[in-house]
Simulated assay, not measured.
Amino acid sequence: MTDTPLTKSCGDCGMCCKVLHISELNKDAGVWCGHFKKGGGCGNYEARPSACRTFTCLWLTSDKLGPEWRPEKAGFLMYAKDDGKRLNVVVDPGKPAAWKREPYYSRLKQMSQRAYDGYELMICVGDRRIVMFPSEDVDLGVLNTDHKVVSGYVERDGAQVPFAMVLSDAE
Results as ranks from 00 to 15, higher is better:
Glu46Leu: 12
Ala97Thr: 13
Pro96Phe: 07
Trp59Gln: 07
Cys13Val: 02
Tyr104Ala: 08
Gly152Ser: 10
Asp127Val: 03
Met15Cys: 05
Gly43His: 08
Tyr105Val: 01
Leu167Trp: 04
Gly94His: 08
Ser135Pro: 01
Leu167Arg: 15
Asp157Pro: 00
Ser151Trp: 02
Trp69Gly: 09
Gly118Asn: 11
Val91Ile: 15
Asp83Cys: 06
Thr56Leu: 13
Val138Trp: 00
Lys64His: 07
Lys27Gly: 12
Ser151Glu: 01
Gly43Pro: 11
Thr4His: 01
Pro162Cys: 05
Trp32Lys: 12
Val91Trp: 09
Ser135Tyr: 00
His21Phe: 10
Asn88Lys: 04
Thr2Asn: 13
Val142Arg: 14
Tyr153Ala: 04
Ala98Asp: 07
Trp69Pro: 06
Ser151Gly: 04
Asp157Trp: 02
Cys52Ser: 11
Thr56Ala: 09
Leu60Met: 14
Arg53Ser: 13
Ser23Tyr: 02
Val89His: 09
Leu58Pro: 00
Tyr119Pro: 01
Phe55Ala: 07
Ser62Leu: 05
Ala47Thr: 13
Tyr119His: 14
Asp12Glu: 10
His147Asp: 11
Leu58Tyr: 11
Pro134Tyr: 04
Phe76Pro: 00
Pro96Thr: 08
Gly84Glu: 07
Pro103Trp: 06
Pro134Met: 02
Pro162Gly: 05
Cys124Ile: 12
Asp146Phe: 11
Phe163Asn: 09
Asp28Trp: 00
Gly141Val: 04
Glu72Ala: 04
Tyr105Cys: 06
Val150Thr: 12
Val138Met: 14
Gly141Met: 04
Ser112Val: 09
Leu140Ala: 11
Cys52Gly: 13
Pro103Met: 05
Tyr153Leu: 05
Val149Glu: 02
Tyr153Gly: 07
Ser62Gly: 07
Met122Glu: 11
Tyr104Asn: 12
